[in-house]
Design a binder for these strands. Structure first.
Lengths: 341, 341
DNA sequence: ATTAGCACTCTCAAGGCAAGAGTGCTAAAG
DNA sequence: CTTTAGCACTCTTGCCTTGAGAGTGCTAAT
């Protein structure tokens, strides 16, 4: 049962299928990966592997194709002997990203693009969840009659702005005082914390209905109703070139995934921000829409504080080795940039 | 030559093909659009139309298919007897957009989505070109060591922010003075004007190298290097359902168009902001990548001032009638919202 | 000028056939 | 007991043919 051999065969099948999406037959395995075994023996082994749920044959007398379970085995095994891949493209990536040190949004946008061009899969990059960011400053500007522009700035370099309607017309002077109050009260807290304390205050201070403070709180409440930050996804044309997406149904799947950004955002946001790369293969994915897709993601941080997530999305038949090191090093590089500045 | 008849046939062919993408034959025309003519006569007419470049047959003995020229004829004719279409979905659109009166970006995002769901084509929305917007105010915040967050706000409700690097470390007090100077100097001007006057001053004041003013100008110069505002494109999954995009090549085309946002931005930005709807059919399109796509666009305004552009992109075989009124009324509605506030 | 009739062309779907690939099983060999 | 050789079997794939169907273009008649 602890036969090394059969895992070597499994390994060979996965590798072969990854480089070339044809069902792989017993004969091919013997030829390409010279075991000292005949094709008949391999056949038996492969039959065993199928029973164990690692392989699948599309029809009698086609070769075998790896299942999700096989890929899982493959990447777990990969993790043990990590770092075998060469990092050729990294130089170029670093060169591309190094010029965008300051602006985190631009950095992430470029990251998603770079990831996609080098992996030939979808590149994704998620900014820090605004709810967990800590407020650096809030500024209010009179915009038009009864309209106020709220500009929120966080320690992470995220800027959110919103125009909100206000019943009584306030002067810029009023607004300055309000923002001063808000800053002294709230800066240094995360937006989530602020939101809950705002709600608390609302209940307590029902009486002070028309004071400056209650106005400030109303502003806060309105301004904090942010949707999660925008996600950057790029490289659709890359995956369209892959043989895995040669039929229209699968293209619809992936394009749906792209347009349903909310789904991916929630998915990535749910993942624990543990260090290192995480791989979700096919049906391991919580979202049913992505049962035939895999994700390789890693979180980036500023110092020790987890920020957002970057990674790639592609078919389950994916060059995991290449992609994992790509995502890993890119995440580390972004972490370095953010921590240095 | 001025025979009404032959144009009626052309009209019939286009209408038929728009509702159903099968090559249309002579017999079908006689049946569906009861002329008092036999199929043989129609055949002759259709042969003439082919000579004139209006029709095309994929192969001997298939019906005819309209060319770009035919669509052009169709929409030009449509323009004359405008407004025949019912505006059923408009109520719903208005309901959807009415709640987002304040924030122009949210408004445009929702617009592109709405356009796509109701047209079943790609919905696009382009914010005002930031270069033509007039500055309302500029604010500088100390962000980190030697880094300054610049927040620009325009009359049009666009907010741009950027973190820039600054050689000498300035205090928030310095920054306040600088922003005060910038506001007094530049607010009310368009960003383009500001950019050119900044360049002029740069040359003149080479001597004042380290004064506050020169710093301010340096800030301005850096902050003004904006790419054109983001464009909103949505509805890829809508077009993937269309029979026109059943082959993978065409999908690649359109997905390339989506990812090359720059291209579309330039395209739309080039179009004169004339009132009313503009239709670009297939090869009329300046960009070669879009030779098999059509665009129906209209600009929206605030008062009399042209702002950005909205519209839809789809195959040349498009329900122009429906789409034109859809785009037209949506643009008018947005104009109304913006002008009211 | 219009129409009926007819031969012609082209596509498309279905069926049949042969080649090729890969399997599973069995029986022999190590 | 494990491995291997051999062979029959299955299934896909490509290719060809065939027939139906649709639509045309041309000619001759109205």
């Amino acid at each position: 049962m602890f036969d090394e051999r059969i895992y070597k065969v499994l390994w060979a099948v996965v590798e072969s299928y990854i480089t070339n999406p044809d069902p792989v037959g017993s004969r091919f395995v013997t030829k390409k990966y010279a075991f000292n075994l005949s094709s008949a023996t391999i056949r038996n082994i492969m039959a065993d592997l199928e029973d164990m749920g690692f392989l699948h044959q599309p029809h009698t007398s086609a070769g075998r194709v790896p299942t999700d379970k096989a890929y899982r085995f493959y990447v777990d095994y990969l993790a043990q002997k990590e770092g075998t891949a060469d990092a050729n493209p990294m130089d170029e990536i670093i060169r591309k990203l190094e010029n965008i040190r300051t602006d985190i949004n631009a950095l992430l946008k470029e990251t998603s693009r770079t990831l996609s061009t080098f992996s030939h899969y979808l590149g994704v990059a998620l900014p820090p969840n605004p709810n967990n960011t800590t407020l650096k400053g809030i500024n209010l500007f009179k915009y038009k009659q009864r309209q106020v522009m709220v500009v929120l700035m966080t320690d992470e370099g995220i800027v959110k702005n919103k125009v909100i309607q206000l019943d009584p017309d306030l002067t810029q002077h009023d607004l300055n005082r309000i923002s001063q109050y808000l800053n002294s009260e709230f800066s240094g807290q995360t937006l989530d914390e602020i939101r809950s304390s705002v709600l608390r205050e609302m209940y307590r201070d029902k009486s002070l209905c028309d004071t400056l403070i209650s106005k400030a709180i109303r502003i806060c409440r309105e301004a904090l109703s942010f949707d999660p930050g925008d996600i950057f996804i790029s490289g659709l044309h890359e995956v369209l070139g892959l043989p895995d997406f040669s039929d229209i149904q699968r293209i619809k799947e992936i394009s749906k995934a792209i347009e349903d950004k909310h789904l991916i955002i929630k998915l990535l946001d749910m993942l624990p921000r543990s260090e290192g790369v995480r791989v979700l293969i096919g049906a391991e994915n919580p979202a049913s829409e992505m049962r035939r897709l895999s994700m390789v993601v890693s979180s980036y941080r500023e110092g020790n504080k987890p920020m957002g997530t970057i990674g790639i999305i592609g078919p389950t038949r994916m060059d995991y080795m290449k992609v994992i090191t790509l995502v890993d090093r890119t995440a580390k590089f972004i972490t370095k940039i953010l921590s240095e500045r």
